[in-house]
């Protein structure tokens, strides 16, 4: 049995909220630089602005984007871990509240979806917990902005569907999102599971690094094909034309019911922010 005090969870979550919001992921930073070399004219200027923006954010430790998001948290806790001095979810929420306060991050959460009163500390976080074997505690943080999130879609396909209409659904989602999702975008796709679980898969997909291969060769090839087709739409940076509409497509497949084939497309912008904590 391994003891982990809540105070260390609070401190690490706080730090992860601040770091993820102010420092652009390295793989995304490299992808933007590649896009900058490829583009010309207005598209090149916009990508250049995003690169400069990330430099200012890092230097001044201010948010890359003012929308510092709803804090999505994915926890994997070993069955031989004992949290001491409090409760896991409370510790995560306390870490979020401190991070958003001390990091001067925007508080974007309302306590009721219809009555819309701001909670003023960016909690509650959306917490997904999985119990795994062992004595480890892995907490992955993803502040998710509203602009791209709003353009995401879920659809139930017929189990007899071929891949082509699924591909078209993903590309159409990017097209309908247009400038609203702040292209260049990153597209997370969950295929299978249930309607709700497909969405979780799509979101978890954003933890993958750009350039990393999908473990399953079929899906790896499909990701590349869809990415190429998305970039052929020429929607471009900020929807103002260009070669770089998406930086990556990540697909997460999962077993599902004989009657079902749900597909969730979660949209994210260049400011896809993630941070991993291992305790």
């Amino acid at each position: 049995m391994k003891n982990i005090p809540v105070e260390s969870i609070i401190q690490e979550v706080k730090k992860a909220c601040i770091d993820s919001n102010c420092v652009l992921r390295k793989d995304i930073s490299l992808a933007l630089r590649r896009a900058h070399r490829r583009e010309t004219g207005r598209a090149r200027e916009i990508v250049g602005e995003l690169i400069l923006n990330s430099k200012i954010a890092k230097k001044e430790m201010m948010p890359i984007c003012q929308d510092t998001g709803i804090t999505c948290v994915f926890v994997e806790i070993g069955d031989n871990v004992h949290i001491t001095g409090g409760y896991l979810n409370e510790a995560i929420n306390e870490g979020v509240a401190r991070g958003y306060r001390d990091g001067f991050l925007r508080k974007s959460i309302v306590e009721d979806p219809l009555f819309r009163k701001n909670t003023r500390n960016n909690t509650p976080a959306i917490i997904h917990t999985e119990i795994v074997k062992g004595t480890g505690l892995r907490i992955r943080i993803m502040p998710k902005g509203g602009g791209a999130e709003n353009m995401s879609r879920v659809k139930n396909f017929s189990p007899n569907s071929t891949v082509a209409p699924i591909e078209e659904f993903i590309i159409e989602t990017v097209r309908l999102a247009g400038a609203n999702a702040c292209p260049p975008v990153i597209v997370g796709v969950g295929i299978g599971g249930t309607m709700d679980y497909a969405g979780v898969l799509a979101k978890k997909a954003f933890f993958r690094a750009i350039g990393s291969a999908n473990e399953k060769p079929f899906y790896d090839k499909l990701e590349k094909t869809i990415l190429e087709k998305i970039n052929q739409t020429c929607i471009g940076p900020q929807g103002l034309g260009g070669k770089t509409t998406a930086l990556a497509v990540f697909i997460e497949p999962y077993p599902c019911h004989i009657a079902s084939l749900p597909v969730a497309v979660n949209m994210s912008c260049h400011a896809t922010r993630t941070k991993e904590i291992i305790l």
Binding site: I46, E49, L50, L52, N53, S54, I56, A57, E60, M62, P63, I64, C65, Q66, D67, R106, K107, S108, N118, R120, G147, A179, C182, Q238, L240, C269, H270, A271
Partner: peptide, 28 residues
């Protein structure tokens, strides 16, 4: 349109900021 996602860069071009109405809305 301004560049979505360039919040740090755009924030630097704002030199003064005064709250004038609806204090209770916070960032809004």
């Amino acid at each position: 349109a301004a560049t979505g996602g360039a919040g740090a860069l755009l924030g630097k071009r704002i030199k003064e900021c005064d709250l004038i109405a609806f204090f209770e809305l916070g960032t809004e």
